[in-house]
Amino acid sequence: MSSLEQMYQQVILDHAKHPVGRGLVAVDADHLHGESHQVNPTCGDEVTLRVDVLPGVDGGPARVAGVSWEGQGCSISQASVSVMTELVSDQPLDEVARLDALFHDLMGSRGKGLDDEGVEDDLGDATAFTGVSKYPARIKCALLGWAALKDSLVRSGASATND
């Protein structure tokens, strides 16, 4: 498989064509919600993402109830938001934070992927972006949606900081 084919895996092309979560949806009044607009100023790609957070009950953890978004951009940025939407939905916030860190590690791997295959499996379809990490100019495309999610969670009040 050429580098180009490694970058544009079929799963990425499929997500770009049939994105998950596209189209902003209203959030229940008794849920937390946050919205973030992120732009990549070098290429003009943008995403507006809304997160719906189900507050924890009886000391249980808060969870991402759903993610919806609007955006335009290259297939990498759009597919990455789509894959992320699937991955984090219904996950507790600490797991979302762990996945975010794993995905950032993957993007820093220069095409090598993560050392721990078991951990890598946790990223599901998002491992398809390993090929992207070989191209420094495209990594920010793949991270655009993740930046919007992190910021939305902060804005929702569900996550305390935006480290």
């Binding site: 544009y8 070098t42 290429c43 790609d45 290259c74 297939s75 990498i76 191209y135 495209r138 495309c141």
Partner: peptide, 19 residues
């Protein structure tokens, strides 16, 4: 998208600007 166009051209050794 222009970025994707540029990537395929780059793979053929062709440098264009995108954005």
């Amino acid at each position: 998208h222009a970025h994707d166009v540029g990537q395929v051209l780059d793979d053929a050794g062709i440098a264009v600007r995108v954005g």
